[in-house]
Every structure is written in structure tokens, then in C-alpha cells.
């Protein structure tokens, strides 16, 4: 019996001493932190993706508090949580959140296996940055996607996958949080964050080849050759041409899809539109007959 008592007393004493030490330590070494930081951290997604540009969510929370103390939290955006989260953050800080346009990652290259022939075989670590060091990668295109999936590895949300058929990364728009990690990881800066557009619809030039038309045409069937037909076709002056590349300004674009028809290379893509009405399909053979 006494054995049990000894055990209980010893264990109890050890527990008590440990508790006292812990209590003293927690009081003595406590780090004072603005309580708002903890509150903000709670509403953040806690993915620690770094998409905001700060080291993790608590870093972002600290930056928000600092910005609020300085007067405004404008420009602070958690790309993952988006507007709803920023509104919560703003309410904690007693401010109004600025309106932000929802964005999505856009892969600006359509150099699929079919469009862009592989001229050499790359042997080495499957990393775009390593492939880049060997030269232009497996294709002759000095600007396009290398297809080794650095963006896939960078994505914390599983929103990008390499399509094995095309060898190209594809963004799942439902999962994409526009954190920008893929854009940062891409050594050729092919991925860009773009406004989602009304109902997710937008027009995109899927090519980044800045070479002259002749060269760009040779390396890829779907390259933008900078011919400028889309510029002429656009009724809203939304398209500009620079470095042998067309650029569609999402602010000005009214989604009329005229540029898509005008592009001789099929480099302009209409995203998330419903399938074309049968009318247009009927038109095409008619045109062919005329020719």
C-alpha cells in the first residue's frame, strides 16, 4: 500500500513542479503581440502559400495591422481568401476593404505536342529551371512552356496539372486562388494572373513568342506571329501589338470574339464561352465553297 502512496506522491510532486515551472516561464517569457494579429490570422485561410508576398499567414496578418496603423490597408490582399476574407480582416481593423477584381492564373502558351514539335529529347531532372539551362528546352521555341511542371509543384491547391496528352499545364479555375505561386515559379513567365472576366469569360492570346513571325511560325503551329489581323478586327481598340505579340486589354475587351476569328494561327482563345451556335458552323463550309 505504501508503495502506491509513494508513487502517487512522487508523480504528483513532479507534476506540480513542472506546472509551476511552465507557469513561471509562460509569464516571464511571454512575447507581447498585438491581439489583432491573432484575430486576423484566425480568419485567414492558413495555407501559408506566400501568395500575398509575406512569409505565411501570420506574416500577412502582422503586415495588415502595421498597414492599418499607418492609415490604410489598401493594396493588402489575400489572394486565396479574396474579397470575403479581406472584408473580415477590414472589419477586425475597423476599416473598409477596397474592392478587388477576382483573378485567375492563365497559361499563355498553347505549344502542345501536336502544335509544337519536340526537336530534341531532354534527359535530366524534370524541372523547368534545369531544362532552361540546356537551352530552349525540348522544342525550338525560346519562349514557350517547357512542360516540366515547376508550376505544378509550386501550387499549394492542386489547381495546376500537366495534361499528359498535350504536355501542357492546365489550370483548374475552381481550385485556383490566384495566389501567384505558379507565376513566380515559371522561369519563362508564361503564367500570368488575369482578371477572371464576367462569368469567367475572357479572351486570351495563348502565346508568348517574341520572335519575328517567320521564326515563331516555324517552331509552333499555334504561335502568335504578330501579323496584327486581330488589331484590325477589334472594334474596341482593345488589342495592341508589341514585340511581335498581340495583347488583349481585359479592361477594354467586350468579348465580341472577332479577334478569335481573325487570327490565322488560332492563337487567340475564347475561354468559358458556351459552344458556338450552329449558325457559325454552317457558315464555314459556305465560305469554303465560295473559295
Amino acid at each position: 500500500m505504501s508503495l502506491i502512496w509513494i508513487a502517487v506522491i512522487v508523480l504528483g510532486a513532479v507534476g506540480l513542479i513542472a506546472a509551476v515551472v511552465l507557469f513561471v516561464a509562460s509569464k516571464k517569457f511571454a512575447v507581447e503581440e498585438d491581439p489583432r494579429i491573432a484575430q486576423i490570422s484566425e480568419v485567414l485561410p492558413q495555407a501559408n502559400c506566400g501568395g500575398c508576398g509575406y512569409p505565411g499567414c501570420s506574416g500577412f496578418a502582422g503586415a495588415c495591422v502595421k498597414a492599418a496603423d499607418a492609415g490604410s490597408i489598401e493594396g493588402m490582399l489575400c489572394p486565396v481568401g479574396g474579397q470575403p476574407v479581406m472584408e473580415k480582416v477590414a472589419s477586425i481593423l475597423g476599416m473598409e476593404a477596397a474592392a478587388a477584381t477576382p483573378k485567375v492564373a492563365v497559361v499563355r502558351c498553347n505549344g502542345t505536342c501536336e502544335n509544337r514539335p519536340r526537336v530534341v529529347e531532354f534527359d535530366g531532372v524534370r524541372s523547368c529551371r534545369v531544362a532552361l539551362m540546356t537551352g530552349t528546352g525540348e522544342t525550338a521555341c525560346a519562349f514557350g512552356c517547357l512542360g516540366c511542371g515547376d508550376c505544378v509543384n509550386a501550387c499549394q491547391f492542386g489547381a495546376i496539372k500537366i495534361n499528359p496528352q498535350t504536355g501542357m499545364p492546365e489550370v483548374d479555375e475552381n481550385l485556383c486562388t490566384a495566389c501567384g505561386a505558379c507565376a513566380k515559379a515559371c522561369p519563362r513567365k508564361i503564367i500570368e494572373l488575369r482578371p477572371k472576366g464576367p462569368k469567367g469569360r475572357r479572351m486570351v492570346v495563348k502565346c508568348v513568342n517574341r520572335d519575328k513571325g517567320v521564326v515563331a511560325n516555324k517552331v509552333c503551329k499555334a504561335s502568335c506571329i504578330g501579323c496584327g489581323k486581330c488589331v484590325k478586327a477589334c472594334p474596341f481598340e482593345a488589342i495592341t501589338l508589341a514585340n511581335n505579340l498581340a495583347y488583349i486589354d481585359p479592361e477594354k475587351c467586350r468579348l465580341c470574339r472577332k479577334c478569335e476569328e481573325a487570327c490565322p494561327k488560332g492563337a487567340i482563345h475564347a475561354v468559358n464561352f458556351p459552344p458556338r451556335k450552329p449558325k457559325t458552323e454552317a457558315e464555314t463550309p459556305a465560305q469554303e465553297n465560295k473559295n
Partner: peptide, 12 residues
């Protein structure tokens, strides 16, 4: 192991 591939990337 493709060590130098990775080291080059790290070095740059």
C-alpha cells in the same frame, strides 16, 4: 543522381 542539375539551379 543528377546532382549537378540541382546544384546549378541552387547556385544560380
Amino acid at each position: 543522381r543528377p546532382m549537378l542539375d540541382n546544384i546549378r539551379m541552387g547556385k544560380s
